[in-house]
């Protein structure tokens, strides 16, 4: 049995002291070890952002991809070798800004991937601009008079587009988050786990304390995650009014929606079995295809 520390590399984390990424990193490594995933069969694809530096700190088969393009890289990796466990880590700018199209289409494909978003409502690595999940009205260097548009309803979008596991976590609640990560990784289908992860340097609104006052665990209130319409309604009620008081706006964390048994994208690819590199061991016999051209 491995331990969370077995997924460390010689590189020390460079995140700011107090960064929510630490809690997520701890929860992920714990999930990997508790699930018994060997580091050489675990593939993780990162986008670009503060979270992405985790590529240097996490022992696995890593791919530190482009900003916004982690999901397509993970899709190719997963479909080309379904024997690997593939986890995707992205920031809120990655997944819901520049990569929103890839996110939506990945949901509807029900790829057997785990999409984990480090959602801190701000662009950290580029010094504090508004992100797609920044609350309306918030002042940032790129929106000095306040954000004019609504934040992306991340989990609502995932449900609408067909993700079969949709959950929300909070990086301070590592134990709860570890459970969500394990559930997301073991879910067969596209698992979306959006994690509130406070940015201590750039986001002075959505702080650790701010989230702690508001979050509650869904399972503590007997939430049934199998009702898609109810789950959708929950995402509409609770997640787009972050400036309201703790009493007015309680933020649920936990599994919002889960649907078992829906076929994955790879289930439809009946033409291949096993890793695709085995298709190129020798030249293919194309005699029949050539005969079509005569």
């Amino acid at each position: 049995m491995s331990t969370p520390d077995d997924f460390l590399t010689p590189n020390a984390p460079t995140w700011c002291p107090g960064c929510g990424n630490f809690g997520m990193w701890r929860a992920l490594r714990t999930a990997y070890s508790e699930l018994g995933l060997p580091f050489d069969k675990l593939a993780v694809v990162w986008g670009i952002g503060c979270h992405g530096n985790g590529a240097d700190f996490t022992k696995c088969q890593g791919f530190h991809a482009l900003h916004g393009r982690a999901l397509p890289v993970a899709t190719g990796l997963h479909l080309a070798n379904p024997e690997l466990t593939v986890v995707v880590e992205m920031g809120d700018g990655d997944a819901f800004g520049i990569g929103l199209g890839h996110f939506a289409h990945s949901c509807r494909r029900n790829l057997d991937l785990t999409s984990i978003t480090h959602d801190n409502q701000v662009y950290g690595l580029t010094t504090g601009q508004a992100s797609p999940t920044t609350e309306q009205g918030v002042h940032t260097p790129s929106t000095p008079t306040g954000v004019l548009e609504r934040p992306v309803n991340t989990v609502g979008l995932a449900i609408a587009e067909g993700a079969t596991f949709v959950a929300r976590g909070f990086s301070d609640d590592v134990e709860h988050l570890t459970g969500l990560m394990k559930a997301a990784i073991t879910h067969k289908g596209f698992a979306v786990l959006d994690v509130f992860q406070p940015c201590v340097t750039w986001n002075k609104l959505n702080t650790h304390a701010w989230f702690r006052e508001r979050v509650y665990r869904l399972e503590d209130e007997g939430w049934d995650p199998t009702d898609r319409a109810k789950a959708m309604a929950l995402t509409l009620e609770n997640f787009s009014e972050m400036t309201c008081t703790p009493e007015e706006c309680r933020i649920p964390i936990g599994v919002i929606y889960q649907e078992e048994g829906r076929p994955t994208y790879a289930d439809g690819l009946t033409q291949v079995a096993g890793p695709l590199w085995k298709q190129a061991l020798a030249p293919r016999d194309i005699t029949r295809a050539l005969a079509e051209q005569s």
Binding site: V73, L77, A80, G101, L276
Partner: peptide, 22 residues
């Protein structure tokens, strides 16, 4: 048939990582 050419290219890169001729 991917959602756009950005996805086509990046998906192919991911498949190549896994060893597929892509």
């Amino acid at each position: 048939h991917t959602e756009d050419e950005i996805a086509a290219m990046n998906t192919v890169i991911g498949a190549s990582f896994a060893g597929a001729r892509a």
